[in-house]
Amino acid sequence: MRSGFSANCPLVRLTHAFDSFGLREDSSAPGLVAQVDQHVAGVRDSLSRDGLPLTRRSLTHYLQGFLDGCRERGWHSDGADYDWETLRLLAVCRLAREEGFVC
């Protein structure tokens, strides 16, 4: 792991937790992969509209705000379905991995 990274970082914790049921590159559900791709684009667009470059810090802040909103709405993932929130979280995980923010 790069220096300056912490296992306590929300991106690291989330990505490692979601790895247990998240999408793999060899996923047999191409429609699901396409949905996550759309969410990846949505996260990038959201950061861009806010004038933020995609960095570990900006993605972490996005994640924290997103999770706060989920908690306010009472959302809980049971891991049994890929609802909108779960797809968005998988997108954040993918971005964190692709950008090298999480090993």
Score class of each variant (00 low, 15 high):
Gly69Thr: 07
Ala17Glu: 12
Leu67Trp: 12
Arg44Gly: 00
Cys9Ile: 10
Arg13Cys: 10
Ala34Val: 08
Asn8Pro: 10
Thr60Glu: 12
Pro10Met: 02
Leu52Thr: 12
Pro53Met: 08
Arg13Leu: 13
Cys70Gly: 01
Arg57Gln: 14
Gln64Ile: 14
Val40Ala: 08
Leu63Tyr: 04
Glu99Val: 05
Gly79His: 04
His61Asp: 15
Gly42Val: 03
Arg88Ser: 10
His76Tyr: 11
Pro53Gly: 14
Ser27Ala: 07
Arg49Gly: 05
Leu87Gly: 00
Ala91Val: 04
Gly69Trp: 01
Val102Trp: 00
Arg13Pro: 02
Leu11Lys: 00
Leu90Ser: 13
Thr15Pro: 03
Ala91Leu: 07
Ala41Ser: 12
Asp26Ala: 08
Glu99Gln: 06
Gly4Pro: 04
Val12Tyr: 13
Phe21Asp: 11
Gln35Glu: 12
Tyr62Ser: 04
Pro30Arg: 00
Gly100Pro: 05
Asn8Ile: 13
Phe21Lys: 12
Ser48Gln: 09
Gly4Val: 05
His61Cys: 12
Tyr82Glu: 08
Ser46Tyr: 10
Val12Thr: 11
Thr86Phe: 13
Leu89Asp: 01
Asp78Phe: 11
Leu63Glu: 01
Arg73Ser: 14
Gln64His: 06
Thr15Glu: 05
Val12Gln: 06
Arg57Lys: 13
Gln38Gly: 12
Ala34Gln: 11
Arg24Lys: 14
Arg97His: 05
Tyr82His: 04
Ala17Arg: 12
Gly69Ile: 04
Asp78Asn: 15
Cys9Ser: 15
Val33Ala: 13
Gly22Thr: 02
